[in-house]
Computed example of a mutant assay.
Amino acid sequence: MAYEFPTLPYPETGLEPHISANTLQFHYGKHHAAYVTNFNNLVKETPLDSLPLEEVIKTTSGDKDKVGIFNNAAQAWNHTFYWHCMKPNGGGAPYGPLADKINADFGSFDEFKTAFKQAGATQFGSGWAWLVLDSGTLKVTKTGNADNPLTQGQVPLLTMDVWEHAYYLDYQNRRPDYMETFLNSLVNWDFVAEKFAAA
């Protein structure tokens, strides 16, 4: 039961001018596609083949004999989640119960933004910044390489990819500019609110 390469929730031009179609052609069309292909090849005709991707991630996390499976499974999942965390004409501030919870747990939306950008800026090398729900509390965290909060029992609500291939064609070495643009012009707060409500 091969894991299917998911379709983008918008056209490759949908996030312009903030993220170019050129970036998505490489990031989605090459990097994400390769993770899916590699994962399917690695688990073919094994017991992991029939498990949901989330279960494969949790099952193989920390298993040195299954590092390749974990890396490709987690990166396939992380990227699908990341695409949904953005939308055309996104950004701005959240609303409703999610906004109330952010204010309660971080002090203000601005303090959340500062913490989120700090997580992205201080992730040395490749990785991800996350907003998660952890035992009922919203937290900002970061993970290196393919790792994600599912392995820590946390509920991912929002992620920002800080691997260089996510932004380098558009922003070169200006990761802070990419992060600012992500929050101001790209975040799909509707998606984040849905994940929060479901948690």
Rank of each mutant, 00 (worst) to 15 (best):
P52K: 07
N89M: 06
T7A: 15
T7E: 15
L15E: 04
V43A: 04
K44R: 14
G144A: 13
W163A: 12
D110P: 02
A193M: 04
Y168T: 10
Y82P: 00
L157Y: 01
F112C: 02
N41F: 02
L131D: 08
Y167E: 02
V56M: 13
P176H: 07
H18W: 15
Y178N: 04
S108W: 03
A21W: 01
K44F: 09
T114G: 03
D177E: 15
F191L: 01
V43D: 05
V67A: 12
L51R: 10
N22T: 14
N89S: 13
K113D: 09
F39N: 09
Y171C: 05
T122G: 08
D49I: 00
L53S: 07
S185G: 00
L133D: 12
G92T: 05
A99Q: 14
T141I: 14
E180N: 13
N173R: 12
M160E: 10
K58G: 01
V56K: 12
F116W: 05
G153K: 08
D177Q: 15
T122M: 11
A34M: 11
K113A: 14
A76D: 10
L183R: 08
W189R: 08
G14A: 02
F191I: 02
L186P: 03
N89R: 10
S50P: 00
E45V: 08
N78L: 05
N148K: 00
V140R: 02
P17E: 08
V155P: 00
G62L: 01
D147G: 04
E4G: 10
F39A: 11
K64F: 14
V67Q: 11
E4W: 03
L131G: 03
D170Y: 03
L186C: 05
P52T: 07
E16H: 01
H84I: 01
P176L: 06
A115V: 02
N145W: 11
H165M: 10
V155W: 03
F70S: 06
T114I: 10
D110V: 06
F116M: 06
A33T: 07
L157R: 07
N103Y: 00
F106S: 11
G127P: 01
A73K: 00
K101S: 11
G92D: 08
G29K: 01
D65E: 13
F5G: 09
V43E: 05
Q25L: 11
A93L: 15
P9S: 00
K195I: 06
P88Q: 02
P176A: 05
A193D: 13
E55R: 15
K101L: 05
N72G: 04
F196T: 01
A93I: 14
Y95W: 11
F109Y: 15
E54Q: 14
A21S: 14
L186H: 07
G125Y: 00
N71Y: 08
N89C: 04
T46P: 06
K64M: 13
N40E: 02
L48V: 01
T59L: 13
T60C: 11
P156Q: 01
V43S: 03
T159L: 14
K64H: 13
T60Q: 04
P88A: 10
A193S: 15
G14T: 03
D63E: 12
H79P: 00
F112T: 02
